[in-house]
């Protein structure tokens, strides 16, 4: 029944014992031509653009119309496109379409195993608090996230904030922050003038402000001694240039900015300036380092105080995205 001599053994093909190439010689040596390859590349790039486009569109819809699509729209869209892309890569670039089907079978088994892995792991993790109501309260799937890393016993994100606030309280950092705010105010003032020279001056001040407000400079490396003085000198030099070109209002503002930087008005500004407000401001900048979510909500809520503060709020609205050039190329 199960074991009988194979009938075909009489006309046995020595070079092909299992009859793989019954349908032609060198089945596995398929040549996929450049036309197909290029077409696939173009399609893949288009799909990449499409998937990015869909994600951006959704954000735009949220921002403009306030319509929040259900979470799965985004997920299903992105993952279906990724699946199509991967099928294209496997079928044409990796030649599965022309290959021995066993390779496809191996890959399918692999995806099946992956599916089982996700399914059953999720089955546990997502139902920890189900079935018995009394468990729903105490059970927190995946833990609390209240990781204790600081001596204060706070969750890690809170501890990060604490560390940051301690740093903010250091005098040079405070100074830098206040200067930045003042500069932004000057930029805003320049914007009202509307002349070419003013725009030029605004660009100069803006760049300086960006540099000083760069999170990396302020927090991680800290402001070098003399950095503010150098900035002031730079601004004065530019002011002198502008004055030579008879653009005096802009030059005046630059001069004023330079005074800010040199610390002339610092004491007064600092008096009305709280750590909290600084924190909120810096948060806006920080969120800006990826370029798209520099929103001014937090800053606006605390905008009723000092002059630099108000100036900053306006400046953020006007220049927010520009101020957020990632990691500025200095």
């Amino acid at each position: 029944m199960a074991h009988h001599a194979p009938a075909a053994s009489d006309h046995f093909d020595e070079t092909d014992p299992h009859g793989h190439s019954k349908h032609g010689q060198h089945e596995s040596h398929v040549i996929v031509g450049p036309f197909i390859l290029r077409t696939i590349l173009v399609v893949l790039l288009l799909f990449t653009a499409l998937t990015v486009g869909i994600a951006q569109l959704e954000i735009a819809i949220q921002n403009w119309f306030g319509i929040y699509l259900p979470w799965w729209v985004n997920v299903v869209g992105a993952m279906s496109i990724a699946t199509i892309k991967s099928i294209l890569v496997m079928a044409y670039f990796m030649q599965l379409k022309y290959d021995n089907p066993i390779n496809t079978v191996a890959m399918l088994f692999c995806f099946f195993a992956l599916g089982l892995f996700l399914l059953f792991t999720g089955l546990d993790l997502f139902t920890r608090d189900k079935i018995y109501d009394y468990k729903a309260g105490p059970v927190v799937a995946g833990g609390t996230g209240a990781g204790v890393v600081s001596a204060g016993g706070k969750p890690i994100v809170e501890a990060s904030k604490d560390r940051f606030l301690v740093k903010l309280a250091e005098p040079d950092v405070r100074e830098a922050m206040i200067t930045v705010n003042a500069l932004r105010h000057e930029v805003h003032e320049l914007g009202k003038l509307g002349t070419d020279a003013a725009r030029q001056a605004a660009a100069v001040i803006s760049a300086r402000a960006d540099y000083l407000s760069d999170l990396k400079t302020i927090i991680v490396k800290q402001i070098e001694p003399g950095e503010l003085a150098r900035s002031a000198k730079h601004l004065r030099d530019r002011a002198a240039e502008l004055r030579a070109g008879a653009a005096s209002p802009a030059a005046d503002l630059l001069e004023k900015a330079a005074q800010h930087v040199a610390g002339v008005n610092l004491a007064e500004a600092a008096a009305s300036y709280s750590i909290d407000a600084t924190f909120a401001t810096l948060a806006s900048f920080a969120h800006g380092d990826h370029g798209q979510h520099a929103h001014s909500g937090e800053a606006a809520s605390t905008s009723d105080r000092s002059r630099p503060r108000a100036g900053l709020t306006d400046a953020l609205e006007v220049f927010g995205p520009a101020a957020a050039k990632p990691q500025g190329g200095h």
């Binding site: 996230g145 209240a146 990781g147 890393v149 969750p155 890690i156 994100v157 809170e158 990060s160 904030k161 560390r163 940051f164 606030l165 999170l215 990396k216 927090i219 991680v220 924190f279 810096l282 948060a283 920080a286 969120h287 380092d289």
Partner: peptide, 21 residues
């Protein structure tokens, strides 16, 4: 460099969600 690091190394002060690490 701005503290967006994994797990216990995390040192980014502007996280809103406690599970960001």
């Amino acid at each position: 460099s701005v503290g967006k690091r994994p797990g216990a190394l995390f040192d980014y002060p502007f996280a809103a969600d406690p599970h960001l690490p």
